[in-house]
């Protein structure tokens, strides 16, 4: 187990290097820092002096990958590649275009993200599994048929409409919850109800359909026949035997996203004005702050890899056949 984790962590290094190189190429090789400066200063009619000043202000006034004018190790370290990309490995994200410390911002904004994403995940999972279990229990009946039809219909609606519709109905027409915003501590609850509800309703279609097919696949297996031959009731068969086996494929999809919950959801957070990492990212995209986007890309890959490792570890809990070596 320990050796396995160590090996996985070691394996993560080349992947992160790859991610880093890729973003570096995207951000600094396809377009030079000059282009970036021009973009920020408002296109075309910009004086070279203004560009130089912008670059100096934001730390782009050094060579991209090789500093021939510097001495010794600084030939490498005094470059954009080193300062902007390699530093990410020690989670030094640098500064945003408006001068704020990205690392500090991330630490502060990940909690609201988590506060909204975690309940969404848990509630969604519970509801989806329950509904899918019910549909599977009534398989090949009208409940099953209509369940599927409703599920397919619901998953054909863009999540944007769920958000817009939810805000319109619950907040604007019935005035049950605030339309958007966020608060600290216990006060946050009233702001969280709507986003969580919207996430639940938006995900229930694809969720139940996916879990139903997992359950049905398990129900077709031989051990279920054995369990029935023992005389067990259908519900016992479903909950004791089928569910425990179905957890294996369900975990694959769920555990890997848990670390990514910190990243928040771009769309939800911006619609509901939640000061989390999702809206942070979307603001950065809209203001074209590459420093933040780069930091989020790197952070996202790290969390994804953590998710993969967690997935493997979680297998050992639910599936006795899996041993990590």
């Amino acid at each position: 187990m320990i050796t396995y984790i160590i090996r996985r962590v070691l394996y993560a290094i080349p992947i992160l290097v790859g991610v880093n190189l890729l973003t570096f190429i995207l951000f600094f090789v396809v377009n030079t820092p000059d282009d970036m400066a021009r973009l920020h200063l408002g296109m075309k009619r910009v004086t070279p002096e203004a560009i130089e000043k912008w670059k100096a202000d934001h730390g782009y006034d050094i060579p991209v990958a090789w500093n021939a004018s510097a001495e010794g190790i600084q030939k490498i370290s005094e470059t954009i590649f080193f300062k902007k990309s390699v530093r990410l490995f020690v989670f030094d994200f640098g500064f945003a275009d408006d001068g704020r410390n990205i690392g500090a911002d991330i630490r502060e904004r990940m909690w609201p993200s988590l506060a909204i994403a975690m309940p969404s995940l848990i509630v969604g999972l519970l509801v989806n599994i329950t509904v899918a279990m019910l549909i599977a229990f009534f398989r090949a009946s009208y409940i099953d048929t209509w369940g599927i039809i409703v599920a397919v219909g619901m998953m054909s609606i863009s999540s944007l409409f769920y958000i817009i519709g939810g805000q319109f109905l619950l907040s604007k027409m019935f005035r049950l919850v605030p339309i958007s915003g966020y608060d600290e501590g216990i006060n946050a609850v009233k702001f969280l109800v709507l986003p969580v509800l919207v996430a639940l309703v938006g995900g229930i279609g694809s969720g139940t359909r996916w879990y139903r097919s997992i359950f049905l696949e398990e129900i077709g297996k031989d051990y279920v026949r054995t369990a029935r031959a023992k005389g067990l009731a259908e519900l016992t068969v479903l909950f004791r035997h089928v569910l425990r086996n179905a957890l294996v494929p369900i975990l694959t999809g769920v555990v890997v996203v848990i670390p990514l919950l910190f990243m928040g959801s771009l769309v939800t957070e911006s619609f509901f004005s939640i000061p989390g990492l999702g809206s942070y990212t979307i603001d950065a995209i809209n203001s074209q702050d590459f420093g933040i986007v780069r930091a989020m890309v790197f952070l996202g890959s790290v969390l994804y890899i953590v998710g993969l490792i967690l997935t493997d570890i979680s297998y050992t809990w639910v599936d006795p056949r899996v041993r990590l070596r």
């Binding site: 992947i15 790859g18 991610v19 890729l22 973003t23 995207l26 951000f27 396809v30 377009n31 282009d35 970036m36 021009r38 973009l39 296109m43 990514l260 990243m263 771009l266 990212t281 995209i285 074209q288 590459f290 986007v293 780069r294 989020m296 890309v297 996202g300 890959s301 994804y304 890899i305």
Partner: peptide, 25 residues
């Protein structure tokens, strides 16, 4: 694995931002 480890929206966002700059240029 490398490509999939980058969250999809962010990769697209990054690429499109870069494209925008390139097209403006």
């Amino acid at each position: 694995t490398t490509l999939s480890s980058i969250p999809g929206v962010l990769l697209i966002a990054a690429a499109v931002l870069i494209l925008q700059v390139y097209m403006d240029k």
